[in-house]
Nucleic acid binder design. Structure first.
Lengths: 149, 149
DNA sequence: TGTGCAAATGCAAATCAATTGCATTTAGAA
DNA sequence: TTCTAAATGCAATTGATTTGCATTTGCACA
């Protein structure tokens, strides 16, 4: 995404257009992988952007609040992951060996969710689904080494 | 569950039968709600059981490793929750207002999971689903107060 | 029924992600 | 250009969880 529309998204949210925010959004928008606050901090530093880790955390909070980014907590619950919010409903497929996280852009739950609302009297506003397993590469490693890393 | 079968489960796992472990399993087995390590620690202390918080954490780890308990990480990712493992596949319905967590004993994903395995070449070993929304009681509060707690 | 030893515990200190207080800087409205 | 709320940097703090180490305990085996 060009810088201009990143800046628009920031400003339309009522946030100030600052370098750390533009850099963070830009980085996540380019990235194929979800990133932790620390990942983001290091990646930007390595690319000559000077900023503070607490600024990264504060920016991520604001940008997540304003739906420019998504915050994702996987099963291990160690660190939060962030992704650019493309406004496309999706879930994740997580490899338990290499920890790669792959988005899945189909969702089997729409009908089920409606049923569940009726059955439970809840108003359901969202759901979270993750699949855990082993990716093709790690399956191959398993075959060769008889052991997963 | 009677103490005897709790002890059997511990011993069958190759763990030592200790008071903290029996107490923790017993508590979670009785409990209607998922509990944090802190919850468990306080509840046992209040019932006259003397034990240390780090013992609670270490016990929870061992008992989770051995599938006697389940560790659950919700979206907020603040504290881990634990439940007795009844070996019945289930998911959760979480109220975003009062944070109540309700287990759901139906699962819409079996067929979908198989499709996904084919499509992605992953071997899928498990999945996690949570629904987020507002429970009946909190909906009522919303109506009355025009604001959720 | 005692003995030995690995496993478990208690306690204090450490870790690690994330948050906060406060002084300084900055974006952007007027 | 000026002004002010918002954002940042830095250091200190928090809160959940983990770890090191000395002590205790469960339990296998004599």
């Amino acid at each position: 995404m060009e810088k201009k529309s990143i800046i628009s998204r920031i400003i339309e949210s009522g946030l100030k257009n600052t370098k750390p925010r533009v850099n963070i959004i830009d980085l996540l928008e380019q990235s194929d992988n979800l990133m932790t606050a620390q990942d983001i901090y290091e990646s930007l530093r390595n690319n000559g952007v000077s900023l503070n880790l607490s600024t990264v955390y504060r920016s991520l909070d604001k940008l997540t609040e304003n739906n420019i980014l998504n915050k994702v907590m996987l099963e291990d619950g160690k660190q939060a992951l962030y992704e650019y919010n493309h406004d496309i409903h999706h879930h994740f497929l997580v490899c338990k060996s290499c920890n790669k996280v792959k988005p899945i852009y189909s969702c089997p739950l729409d009908k089920y969710e409606k049923e569940l609302e009726k059955k439970t009297n809840f108003i359901i506003t969202g759901h979270r689904v993750e699949f855990y397993g082993y990716c093709k590469e790690c399956q191959r490693k398993l075959k060769n080494n008889k052991t997963l890393i």
